[in-house]
Simulated scan of single mutants.
Amino acid sequence: MIIKILGSGCKKCLALEENAKAAADAAGKQAEVIKVTDFAEIAGYGVMSTPALVVDDKVLSMGKVLTSAEIELLL
């Protein structure tokens, strides 16, 4: 599983990254977490507000920091 965190690297982006890692661990899934800061690549996903959560190239959330429990439900 590949989890991408789309954003500029701001505080909210870092929080979403940590929550995604915790959710993958709690779900018992092996995941590679990648930070994407290139705005052209972010726009390619159709994301207009960050941070955004992408799992296996599917946008699951944008514009908010999900908790690890919320992310675990999406995985």
Rank of each mutant, 00 (worst) to 15 (best):
M1W: 10
I2K: 15
I2E: 15
I3K: 11
I3C: 11
I3H: 11
K4F: 03
K4R: 14
K4T: 06
K4H: 10
K4L: 07
I5Y: 07
L6C: 11
G7H: 05
S8M: 11
S8E: 14
S8P: 12
G9D: 07
G9S: 09
G9T: 09
K11F: 12
K11Q: 12
K12Y: 13
C13N: 09
L14R: 14
A15V: 11
L16Y: 04
E17C: 00
E18T: 14
N19V: 06
N19T: 04
A20D: 08
A20N: 09
A20I: 08
A20S: 15
A22W: 03
A22V: 12
A24K: 06
A24Q: 02
D25A: 14
D25M: 13
D25P: 01
A26N: 09
A26R: 12
A27E: 10
G28K: 07
G28D: 06
K29Y: 08
K29E: 15
K29C: 08
K29M: 14
Q30V: 12
Q30W: 06
A31G: 02
E32V: 13
V33K: 02
V33P: 05
V33A: 05
I34Y: 06
I34P: 06
K35Q: 14
K35G: 00
V36Y: 06
T37F: 07
T37L: 06
T37S: 14
T37Y: 04
D38M: 07
F39N: 11
E41N: 01
E41W: 00
A43F: 09
G44Y: 09
G44S: 08
G44K: 04
G46A: 05
V47K: 03
V47W: 04
M48L: 15
M48D: 01
S49M: 12
S49D: 00
T50V: 15
T50W: 00
P51T: 02
P51I: 06
A52T: 03
A52V: 08
L53P: 08
L53S: 03
L53C: 04
L53R: 00
V54M: 07
V54K: 04
V54R: 00
V55T: 04
V55W: 00
D56F: 06
D57T: 02
K58F: 04
K58L: 05
K58Q: 15
V59W: 00
V59D: 06
V59N: 02
V59M: 05
L60K: 09
L60A: 02
L60S: 02
S61G: 07
M62S: 14
G63E: 03
G63K: 01
K64R: 15
K64Q: 13
K64G: 07
V65W: 07
V65I: 08
L66Y: 07
L66C: 09
L66M: 12
L66F: 05
T67S: 15
T67E: 11
T67Y: 01
T67I: 02
S68F: 10
S68Y: 11
A69L: 10
E70H: 08
I71C: 05
E72R: 15
L73V: 15
L73H: 15
L75I: 14
L75M: 15
